[in-house]
Nucleic acid binder design. Structure first.
Lengths: 215, 215
DNA sequence: GCCTAAATACCTCAAATGGGTGATTGACTC
DNA sequence: GAGTCAATCACCCATTTGAGGTATTTAGGC
């Protein structure tokens, strides 16, 4: 917990190009006990340049910024200020952009049309180690990290089996013995695998297999 | 949506070894319009054997089952019945087990002590494509899929560089040319990499590199 | 019954790989 | 000044791999 003294406010920075929204958010924050808007930028570049000097607890980041997008900015800030939580500001919640933001390192997101009370509550939840999100975003997040083997795999069952052994670094001979087939057969399968995966070495095959979760 | 006719109830199966809890859950479900307990098993083995014949919409799975654990069962059911959502039943929510269950394919989880209304609401949310979860679990889930390169890598900078080329399937000679060093040096580095990663082939090194996000 | 895809098997050969051993240089630490 | 480590280069040698072929036998789909 960063905030040992419980009556220290949560320090928030805003990155939002629309001046009206920016001011309105700042007012909501500064008008509420426990929250403090310490900074407000109108561009990602501005925020990246100035934030590291005085890292806030939470950054509210507009997704659709002109120039550098909020998602790119999130990636950079998340790298440089690992202690700071980035929360996205978005108009529409079931958005690819929201999902991509989470991939880029955002901890949560706010819908711009949220009532102020709920908005503050979400900030608080993020600050306390949570990640509030809607049902459908939650599902997408979970799906994406449950490594589902790609059903649309171009490989046959036997080929997948061989690929698995290949990934373990087993030699043709060992694979052949384990599968009770001849080494020649293993070679044939591997050639087919390479062709289908568009690679021409074991290393590339392993990489592709891992990346596309073929096994 | 599986339930085109909106007044079809959500079909739920229960896997729970404690008879009292099992009956209580079944009663809650059957006593509520829109929900139907179609099956109740006292073991994971039982459920796996009988569920595929008549797949429910949602399975409530106890985490701490005797014999095969609920997590293993989830993995199997999730594979065999991809249309069915598995929801874990747990006493304590901020549990490694819950997180592991989600990795295994669970879509959500219920706290056994939840009031019935909230319990039904969670089932409904899962059924409608959501994934209700607590703040801290949500954060863990998000963290885990934000692929942070492992900073505690045992490899030196040069070794990581070589490893990257290795993952691309480049031959020693090509790597040597690209890095303006001799092939012998490349070999030396690779030998050191293998030793540090505790592997003895390129394939295993690539796999490890991908898994541990060393590159 | 025919046809295709999948799985099986065999051959040759040049190139790449991995194991072992050892040396030199520069930088950094104690 | 001694010791350590990263990075570089070197040699020997057995094994593995990848690329080029060809061919037989199942198993399913039509």
């Amino acid at each position: 917990m960063r905030r040992e003294i419980e009556d220290q406010p949560i320090c928030v920075a805003i990155v939002e190009d629309d001046e009206a929204i920016r001011h309105s958010l700042a007012q909501i924050l500064n008008g509420s006990p426990g929250y403090l808007c310490v900074n407000a930028f109108e561009s990602a570049e501005d925020a990246i340049a100035n934030l590291p000097a005085d890292p806030p607890d939470v950054v509210l980041m507009d997704i659709g910024l002109p120039g550098m997008s909020g998602i790119e900015a999130t990636q950079i800030l998340h790298d440089r200020l690992p202690e700071t939580d980035v929360v996205m500001l978005t108009v529409q919640e079931n958005d690819d952009a929201v999902f991509n933001s989470l991939c880029a390192g955002a901890t949560g997101y706010l819908i711009k049309s949220m009532p102020p009370a709920q908005l503050l509550q979400s900030i608080d939840e993020v600050y306390r180690g949570g990640s509030p999100m809607s049902a459908s975003i939650a599902r997408r997040v979970i799906r994406s990290f449950q490594s589902e083997p790609d059903i649309a795999s171009p490989l046959t069952r036997r080929e997948r089996e061989i690929l698995e052994h290949l990934c373990n670094g087993e030699s043709y001979r060992v694979i052949a013995e384990k599968l009770f087939i001849s080494g020649h057969t293993v070679r044939s399968h591997i050639k087919n695998i390479y062709e289908k995966l568009q690679v021409n070495s074991r290393a590339e095959a392993v990489r592709k297999a891992m990346q596309e979760k073929l096994i």
